[in-house]
Design a binder for these strands. Sequence first.
DNA 1: GCCCGGTTACTCGGATATATAGTGTCCGAGTCCGATGGG
DNA 2: CCCATCGGACTCGGACACTATATATCCGAGTAACCGGGC
Lengths: 160, 160
Amino acid sequence: MRMGRGVEWAVHALLTMTWLGDDEPVPTAQLAANYELPPAYLNKQLQALVRAGLLVSVPGARGGFRMARPAQEITLMDVVAAIEGPDDAFQCTEIRRRGMGENLPAGTFRAPCAVSAGMQRAELAWRRSLAAQTIADVRAEADARAPGVAPMVRRTYGRD
Amino acid sequence: MRMGRGVEWAVHALLTMTWLGDDEPVPTAQLAANYELPPAYLNKQLQALVRAGLLVSVPGARGGFRMARPAQEITLMDVVAAIEGPDDAFQCTEIRRRGMGENLPAGTFRAPCAVSAGMQRAELAWRRSLAAQTIADVRAEADARAPGVAPMVRRTYGRD
DNA sequence: GCCCGGTTACTCGGATATATAGTGTCCGAGTCCGATGGG
DNA sequence: CCCATCGGACTCGGACACTATATATCCGAGTAACCGGGC
């Protein structure tokens, strides 16, 4: 039950774009260099964000990635779903109906498995919490905790 | 972000023990046969439950596994933690402080990373939901959805 | 000075290897049950 | 008939392969910027 690192990278990439403020595209190479990450692999993760409609890719020289919509309209749930895929973590294989033969009347297991239901309730709580937090919220919290990052980022990326 | 199947197997195994009612140990082979699961691998998962203190193993002939405490004192959180381990799904690698040099004043990143905080909030909601559901709850829900399973299980396991 | 075409360098994008964790299997150590022989 | 002893079979337990996923890399296609020449 370990989440891929791509999620962390993706959120930080989105945060950086928010700090930059403008709509000029950011190349993967620059993000990877500043965060000390493997460039090609980071590129792969950002491609996933493009497929999910969170980023727009700009090809050619001075190209890169740009946010597809404002930060307050992108939730952590969107990012996780884009990177990790839409499947639930817990997957019910209906093992409950195996083994005990045909002795129970037909339709006994029509209702969903109680185990699966319990797990899905927990995952729903997780998803709700993720969906309630936007990138803008995360940025606000980060700014409150570590002030003065935004101008530094703009300088690091040569925007001023 | 896929959860191992061992969790599903473990919960169903605990459910079966609850249905059996008595404290006689259940051998892995019987559980595996009835659920059509690989016996040795199921045994491995049950061993994890023993290490976590949820089950007690009884060696020797007529041995097997027995619940270490009543079903209402075992939560889904306990089972997940026993199988999947105690680590958080999202692991912060503190990539925020890399790359932007030593230009920021020391102590800027003393507070925890905002990205990590957001993810942890979501995971906490997940854990709370899992901890709020006991095996007894799951059994009650399963009984309500598919009545008449308990006696059938007792018969299948030769307890009557 | 302005416009146009060719060249160049830079970017994304997907196909291809490697590392790691999950899945599955095997064999040995220990324990209890039952049969067996004696009292 | 009752009890001690021996043998056997069954169980868990951890060490050993195999497979799927995540991680990392490489190279090609495409595009925009830049430079040079012509008008």
